[in-house]
Design a protein around this nucleic acid. Structure first.
Lengths: 155, 155
DNA sequence: GTTGAAAGGCGCGAAAG
DNA sequence: CTTTCGCGCCTTTCAAC
């Protein structure tokens, strides 16, 4: 299932294009990288088969959906059993307002990115978090401004 | 440029589908929400025109690109002039390893999400950050595990 | 809102150099 | 890798209900 050839420069150029605009046709992509359509299409197929391209999605505008508030939540869990932690992680993951969950090293254990309409909605999420298991410390950082939000990786 | 009608439940159902899979055809989407192709297509057009749908992209797998390390960086800038801050923000935004930049309220001023191959690459980014302007405090939280990473908003 | 249909583009794949 | 060819699906539009 893995790559025999890693990824050559043509593959990378294709990836750079489609991770910014997946609505382009094969012909347009092929023209941009200086290849004809057939090999370009085959490379795209291969990149999808390898799982380098995971899926294609539509990116929505959170503001226009009434989701104006982003909050970063840092959590210190303190002492807990494995089952308690598993339950905590499962519940947190299942909450749709919680977009990202990372376990991190350092003075905190988890970092969450929460997207909600307003502070009232965030308060609900915050309450749910505190009710899951006793947490040693929960710190919230409300986003005042989204300066950059990039979905395209440097390839 | 703004909506006369906000968004009805059909619009939301379309958005829920395409923000998870934009490779579906109009016919498939129409079938899923119980609408015929023509009105479904018109709604999609309208959602794009309104900017609710910003663009369509391919989502790549960072691990398969050799980007195995995510780091959250919290920055306290201390006292600086407006021009210094602007320069800092511009430089930070232009670095492609820095995926997200948020200005936040609380004990820190900025939160960054950095995606790099390894700690050596992160060290380069870290050095660049410190060289931009004198920073009061920079705290890095290395991600040990990505438990959840959601691109679809709750609509 | 619905169906049906037409026109053209494009994905997809085969064939051959 | 390249070009060419073609089938068939899909988008896009129109007309009529």
């Amino acid at each position: 299932m893995n790559h025999l050839k890693p990824l050559d420069s043509m593959d990378r150029r294709i990836l750079r294009i489609v991770q910014r605009d997946a609505s382009l046709t094969i012909s347009e992509i092929a023209a941009q990288i200086g290849l004809s359509q057939t090999p370009c299409w085959k490379r795209l197929q291969r990149l999808e088969a390898l799982g380098v391209i995971k899926r294609r999605i539509a990116v929505l505008d959170p503001k226009k959906l009434g989701l104006g508030l982003t909050v970063f939540v840092s959590i210190e869990v303190g002492q807990h059993s494995g089952e308690e932690l598993t339950r905590f992680v499962d519940c947190v993951s299942s909450m749709e307002e919680i977009m990202d969950v990372y376990r991190v090293a350092g003075d905190v254990d988890f970092v969450l990115r929460v997207v909600v309409p307003d502070t009232a909605a965030f308060d609900v999420v915050y309450g749910k978090l505190r009710d899951l298991i006793p947490l040693k410390n929960v710190t919230s950082h409300i986003a005042l401004e989204n300066i950059k939000s990039e979905t395209a990786f440097p390839v």
